[in-house]
C-alpha cells in the first residue's frame, strides 16, 4: 500500500490513486492458437523482480502509464 508510483504527467503519487493492469505475456513456445488464448486470458508470469507494468492513474490524469517496478522491494 505504501507503494508510490511516478506518473509522467502528475508526479509521484501513492498507489491508492492507481489501478493495476495486467500485461499478458504468453511465452513464445506456446504456439497453438487455443493454447495462446488460454494463456493470455488466465496465466501470468508473476515475475519476481523487475517487471514492466501498466497502471491507470485514476486519481489524477486518468491515463495509462507504463511503469517498471521491482516486485520484491
Amino acid at each position: 500500500m505504501a507503494l508510490r508510483l511516478h506518473c509522467p504527467h502528475c508526479g509521484v503519487r501513492p498507489v491508492d490513486e492507481w489501478v493495476y493492469g495486467e500485461v499478458p505475456d504468453p511465452p513464445d513456445h506456446l504456439t497453438g492458437a487455443d493454447e495462446r488464448d488460454v494463456d493470455r486470458g488466465f496465466m501470468m508470469s508473476n515475475t519476481e523482480g523487475a517487471k514492466q507494468e501498466r497502471w491507470f492513474h485514476a486519481g489524477g490524469c486518468g491515463r495509462w502509464q507504463a511503469i517498471e517496478r521491482d516486485t520484491t522491494i
Binding site: C10, G11, R13, P14, D16, E17, A58, G59, G60, C61
Partner: peptide, 10 residues
C-alpha cells in the same frame, strides 16, 4: 496545475 487525492478524494 496539480491533480491527485486530497483527503482521499480525487
Amino acid at each position: 496545475v496539480a491533480q491527485g487525492h486530497l483527503a482521499g478524494i480525487p
